[in-house]
Amino acid sequence: MAATGSRRLFKEYRSLSSDPPEGITAGPIDEEDMFLWEALIQGPEGTPFEGGVFPAELKFPKDYPLAPPKMKFLVDVWHPNVYTNGEVCISILHPPGDDPLHYEKASERWSPVQSVEKILISVMSMLAEPNDESPANVDAARMWREKREEYEDIVRKNVKKSLGL
């Protein structure tokens, strides 16, 4: 099982390295352990995240690609769909059949046909367009809804701080 997972991750690593999507760098921290990756995501343009680079850790389960990885930002990300500990909460990271409230369509959720690349692209677009329906960070969600300027201010400050400026 683990061999299938690491073979698949290796293939994904190769395609992400030879043809990286715009603004994304991802790969295992050490090839000894293919189940722990680190990714860098660029903040999408035209959003307060623009100009920032956001590192995140991806932890793959041993039965990947049957189950999705867990993703956690390693810098402060003030966003309705990111927990204060950095964990990302979006539908593509949820296994199908895990959602009793039916917030998400099954097609949006994790399945073996998805990939690391698709996750990272989804996270990038999540930064641009938060999903207000099931927030992971309630305070950020409220601020995003009611005091957009204050929200964008915090995001920009975090970007500057994370780049050491």
């Binding site: 390295s17 990286p20 090839e31 860098l40 100009g51 780049l163």
Partner: peptide, 19 residues
Amino acid sequence: QSNLQKRREEMILAARRKL
């Protein structure tokens, strides 16, 4: 491994310069 590291570093440094 070192290519990946270089790409990471370059991405961060470029972002920093731009900002």
